[in-house]
Structure formats: C-alpha cells, structure tokens
C-alpha cells in the first residue's frame, strides 16, 4: 500500500497528464467517430514531429532550471539554410550534418554567454531568437522549394505500421521517437542526467557537491540547439521547403507542452515522457477543433490556456503533498 502511494506521489503529474490525454481522446472519439481510426492517432505524431523534438530539448533545459526561447526561430533558420544549400546542389547528408553542427554551435555559444557572462537565459535566448529569424530572412526572404531526390524520398515514403490496417508514419516522424528514447535513458539513468536534475534543484549546492556545473550547462544548451536544428531538418523535409516565417511562436507551444507534461519551470523535476503526452494533448485539442469544423479557432487558444492552468493546479497539489 505504501509502495503504491509513493509511486502515485512520485509520478502523480505524469499519470495525470496521461489520464487527461486518454480522457480527451475518448471524448473526441465519442463525438466524432472518425477519430477512432488509428491513423488519427499517428497523425498526431506526423503533424507534431518538430514540436516533439524541440519540446524534448526544452524539457532538458527546463529541468536544469533554464529556458530556451530560440528554438522556433532556429527551425526557420535551419530550414532556409538547408533549402538554400540544396538549391546549390549540396549533398543532402552533408547539409544535414552541417545543420546539426550549426544548431549545436549556436546553442553552445548561447550557453557560454549564459554561464560565463552570467546573463539571464531568458534574455540571451531571446536574442538568439531575433538573430536566427533575422538571419533566416537575410539568407532568403521568400520560401525556397526543396527539389532534392533524397529529401523527396524521405518526405513522401510512408512506413506502414504493423498491427494496424492502413496506418502509416513518415520516415522523419521516427526521429522524434528515437530522440525521446535516447533522452529518456540519458536523463533517468546516467550520471549526466542526475547532474542536470541537481543543477535544477539548486545550482549552488550542485557546485558545492563538486558536480561539473559549467560543463553540464553548456552541454544542455548545445543539446537544445541540436534538437532545434534536428526539428528544423524534420520541418524542412515534411514541407519540402525553407522559409523564414516557419516555426512562428513555436517556442511557446513547446513551453506549454513541457509544462502540461508535468515539468516544473523552476527546474529539478520532470520527465521527457510527460512532455510526449504534453505534445499529444496539444495536438488532440487542435484535432478535435478541426474535426468539429464549426468551432472557431479562438477556442483552441482559450482551451490550451485553461488546460495549462488545470495542469499547474494538479502539479502544485502533488508538490504540496510531497512536502507534507
């Protein structure tokens, strides 16, 4: 009994998130029977592939007590830069590697400014956001079509899923899943992961404990940069184009997903698994509105706002209990 109780308390926010997702999905499926098709569920992954990837990076940053506002703009920059390179007949694999390096490097630079110059993460990454979006428009102001064989192949090849009839995902969709598993293991069962949680709980005491604070912080921001570059690649593949206007205010969607997924913005707690469900909940609300077809769009925003509030309520409930 005690075990169950402690398990519930420990994973309360996560379980609540999962439960709400299932509940919302069930209501949706009841209202609109076509939502019961398995493909609707997999479409959530296809449609939110990029959001999932940046949310994973954001989760790690937030657990460490930081924030990264540059992710949405990084998607735009990556998509434009890779489209421009591909237009000049660059090798697609080379382009992808280059983009990942660029993202990681930009994240690293921001991490350096945050850690060594002691500037607020909020401000630095905001600057990164302006810079990345500005550069995207400087490279090309209108959208560039990608006409590369390899990209085309990645974009249009469906992977039929076993056990489900007529259900499929696209190749880039898998990137998020792989990254999710990798990050989950990284955070839950490595020394590095524990350091991230420790810094999020209390940076000072982490430092006093002799943990490699500087190194970890730089790695986490670089990782977030890597994630946003990867998300940018996925984005440019699924849309087969690059444009400076892509990923507008996606950082806010990511933060909302992270929070809905049970990660506290103060740092120190949270899981990427929760974030997955945060992203899915975000997606399912949009889907329900789209299936309804008469509700006006402002209900999406009000709905997401209200849900965030509910989740924070649930979270604080659990944290209060924990403290007692």
């Amino acid at each position: 009994m005690q075990k169950i109780k402690s398990f519930l308390l420990k994973n309360g926010p996560l379980l609540a998130t999962v439960a709400i997702f299932i509940l919302v999905y069930a209501i949706g499926a009841q209202l609109y029977p076509t939502m019961k098709k398995p493909q609707v569920f997999f479409n959530l992954f296809i449609n939110n592939g990029s959001l999932l990837i940046i949310s994973i990076g954001m989760t790690m940053t937030v657990i460490m007590g930081g924030i990264d506002l540059s992710v949405g703009a990084m998607i735009a920059l990556t998509s434009v830069a890779s489209a421009a390179l591909l237009q000049k007949n660059a090798d697609p694999v080379f382009v992808m590697v280059l983009m990942l390096l660029m993202g990681t490097a930009l994240g690293f630079v921001m991490g350096c400014i945050i850690h060594y110059l002691k500037v607020e993460a909020f401000v630095v990454t905001l600057m990164g956001q302006f810079f990345a979006r500005g550069m995207a428009y400087v490279i090309n102001e209108s959208s560039i079509t990608i006409k590369n064989e390899f990209y085309n192949y990645l974009a249009l090849t469906k992977i039929n899923l076993p056990f489900f009839e007529k259900a499929y995902v696209y190749i880039p969709t898998l990137a998020g899943i792989v990254l999710l598993i990798f990050t989950f293991i990284l955070l839950s069962s490595t020394r590095f992961g524990r350091t991230v949680y420790a810094i999020g709980n209390n940076e000072q005491s982490a430092l006093l404990m002799g943990l490699p604070v500087a190194r970890t912080k730089l790695i986490v921001y670089s990782f977030s940069g890597f994630c946003s570059a990867l998300a940018g690649i996925v984005f440019s593949i699924s849309l087969l184009s690059g444009y400076g206007g892509y990923g507008q205010s996606m950082e806010m969607d990511a933060i909302a997903s992270v929070v809905i997924g049970g990660t506290a913005l103060t740092g120190g707690t949270g899981t990427v698994l929760g974030t997955l469900f945060g992203v899915l909940i975000n997606g399912i609300i949009v889907s329900i509105l789209q299936f309804n077809g008469t509700l006006t769009s402002w209900w999406t925003r009000i709905g997401v706002g209200a849900l965030t509030l509910i989740f924070i309520g649930i979270q604080s409930l659990f944290y209060v209990k924990k403290k007692d």
Binding site: K37, N43, N47, L239, Y246, Q248, V286, S287, Q290, F291
Partner: peptide, 16 residues
C-alpha cells in the same frame, strides 16, 4: 497563419 496547422487540418479532413 501557421502552415503546420493548415496541414494537420487537411489530414483531419482526409480522415473524416
């Protein structure tokens, strides 16, 4: 004004 939303809306329509 977001293309990703428009695309997901088309997918929802297809499923319906």
């Amino acid at each position: 004004q977001k293309q990703e939303n428009q695309i997901s809306a088309v997918r929802a329509c297809i499923q319906q």
